[in-house]
C-alpha cells in the first residue's frame, strides 16, 4: 500500500524527533492572491497546511477565525476559487499535504460526491468537517477513503472512552484532538499537562494514528507540546493577518516570520 502524503509528512517529523507543525489559514484571506502567497511562504516551515473554506455562520470558531472568514467572504471568495488556490499551490509544492477544513453546509450545497471528486482532482489530502461528527460522518468518511483522501476525525475532552474507541476505529491516518472546551483560538484554560494526559490516553488506544493537538495553541505555549505527533496553530496566524492589514504591513512577511518561529519552538 502506498502511504498517504499526510502519513509521509508525520514519518519525516518522527525521524527528526519533533512534532509536525500544522498551520490553518482561511482561503481568500484577505484576497485570493494574498492567501496563496501566504500559503506558499509558510509552507516552507509548516509540515501540513490546513486551509479553511469560510462559512458565515460558524458555530465552533472564535473571533480571530471569524474575522478572517468574514473578510474572505466579503472579498468574494467562492468554492471554485478555493479549489484553484489548492491546485496552484500543489503545483509548486507537490508533496506538501493540504487539508481542507470547514462546515458541512458548504459541502452539502456543492454536492458531496462532486466535492470529493474536485478535492481529489486538485490534490487535497485530507478533509475536516467541523459540524459532521461521528457516526453521522461514517458515509462521507468512507467516500473520502475510497478516493484516497483522509477524513480527519475530531476528539474532544467531552468524548467518552467507549466513543473514543469507536471513532478511532473509524479514523484514517490522522486524528485531531481538541485541547479544551472552547471555540478555536480561546485562551488555553487547562494546563498542557492535563491536555497531554488526555493525549496519552488516546495514544494508548491506538499508537499508530497520528494525533495532533489544536485549539488555543500559540507561540507562547507550543513548546509544551513537543511530545505530540503534531500541533495546529490557526487563530494566532489569522490574528497576525488582521493586525498586519490594520497596520498596513505586509501580512505575507509577518506571517512567514511567525510560522518560522513556531517551527523553531518545536525543535
Amino acid at each position: 500500500m502506498i502511504s498517504s502524503q499526510i502519513n509521509l509528512a508525520f514519518n519525516k517529523c518522527k525521524k527528526e524527533k519533533r512534532p509536525a507543525l500544522l498551520t490553518y489559514t482561511v482561503a481568500g484571506d484577505n484576497t485570493k492572491k494574498k492567501s496563496l502567497e501566504i500559503l506558499n511562504s509558510i509552507s516552507n516551515h509548516a509540515d501540513i497546511c490546513e486551509i479553511g473554506f469560510p462559512h458565515n455562520t460558524p458555530i465552533a470558531d472564535g473571533g480571530q477565525i471569524q474575522t478572517s472568514s468574514y473578510r474572505a467572504i466579503k472579498n468574494g471568495i467562492k468554492m471554485k476559487d478555493i479549489f484553484q488556490i489548492v491546485k496552484t499551490f500543489k503545483k509548486n509544492k507537490k508533496t506538501k499535504p493540504v487539508i481542507l477544513m470547514g462546515y458541512y453546509n458548504m459541502i452539502f450545497q456543492y454536492g458531496e460526491n462532486k466535492f470529493i471528486k474536485k478535492c481529489k482532482q486538485v490534490g487535497v489530502n485530507g478533509i475536516i468537517v467541523v459540524d459532521l461528527p461521528w457516526p453521522e460522518n461514517k458515509l462521507f468518511a468512507k467516500k473520502c477513503k475510497k478516493n484516497s483522501i483522509n477524513f480527519i476525525q475530531l476528539l474532544s475532552p467531552t468524548t467518552s472512552k467507549p466513543r473514543m474507541k469507536k471513532i478511532i476505529r473509524d479514523s484514517h491516518d490522522m486524528i485531531y484532538l481538541i485541547s479544551m472546551l472552547s471555540t478555536t483560538g480561546g485562551k488555553l484554560k487547562v494546563s498542557p499537562k492535563k491536555i497531554l494526559e488526555n493525549y496519552n490516553k488516546i495514544k494508548k488506544i491506538n499508537k499508530s494514528k497520528n494525533l495532533v493537538i489544536g485549539f488555543g495553541i500559540t507561540s507562547k505555549n507550543i513548546s509544551s507540546f513537543k511530545k505530540a505527533d503534531g500541533c495546529v496553530v490557526g487563530s494566532e496566524i489569522c490574528k497576525k493577518i488582521s493586525n498586519s492589514i490594520e497596520k498596513r504591513q505586509n501580512p505575507v512577511k509577518n506571517v512567514n516570520y511567525m510560522v518560522k518561529n513556531l517551527r523553531r519552538k518545536l525543535l
Partner: peptide
Amino acid sequence: GNFIPETLKKP
C-alpha cells in the same frame, strides 16, 4: 439531525 461539533456530542 445533529450537525454539531464533537465537543457538544456529550452534552
